[in-house]
Amino acid sequence: MLTLNVNGTTHQVDVPGDMPLLWVIRDILKLTGTKFGCGIAQCGACTVHMDGKPVRSCVLPVQSVAGQEITTIEGISEKPLARKVQRAWLDHEVAQCGYCQSGQIMSALALLNDQTSINDHAIDLAMAGNLCRCATYTRIREAIKDVSESVGVWQP
C-alpha cells in the first residue's frame, strides 16, 4: 500500500512501486485528464505538478512520489491563476483536438507560478517539452503572453 496525495486528497493505492504515476492517476484514481502520449518523457501530455513543479508522470515511479503533493489538471480550477490560464486558452481558441492541452496548461501554469519575468524565450524554454501534433503553438504562445501581461510579469 502506498499513500498518495493527489489534488489535496489522500489515497491508498495497492500497486507495484515501479508503476509510473501516470497509470496510477489514470487507471487507479480514474483521473483521466492527464494523458498518455509517449511514455518516454518526450511529449509532455502526462505533465502534472509535484510540489508545484511540472513533472512527466509517465517516467515517475509511483514509489518516489510518496509524501509529495501531486496536482493534476482536475485539481487546478480552484486557483485564480489557473482559471486565468484556462480562460486565456478559450479566448485564444487554443485547443484543436485538445489531447495535449492538459499537459500544455500544466506546463504553462508552472511557468506562470514560478517566474517573475516572462518573455518569448522563457515560454520556449518552459513549453518546449510539450508536443502538440495539431501544432497549436502560435496560440499557446499568445495565451501565455496574455496571462503574463494581465498579471504583470510580461517583460519582452
Binding site: 483521473l31 483521466t32 485528464g33 492527464t34 493534476t72 489538471i73 482536475e74 480550477s77 484556462q86 486558452w89 478559450l90 481558441e93 487554443v94 485547443a95 485538445g98 492541452q101 492538459s102 496548461i105
Partner: peptide, 9 residues
C-alpha cells in the same frame, strides 16, 4: 467543444 478540453473533463 473546448471548455472541457482545458479542464481535463
Amino acid at each position: 467543444d473546448t471548455p472541457t478540453k482545458v479542464n481535463g473533463q
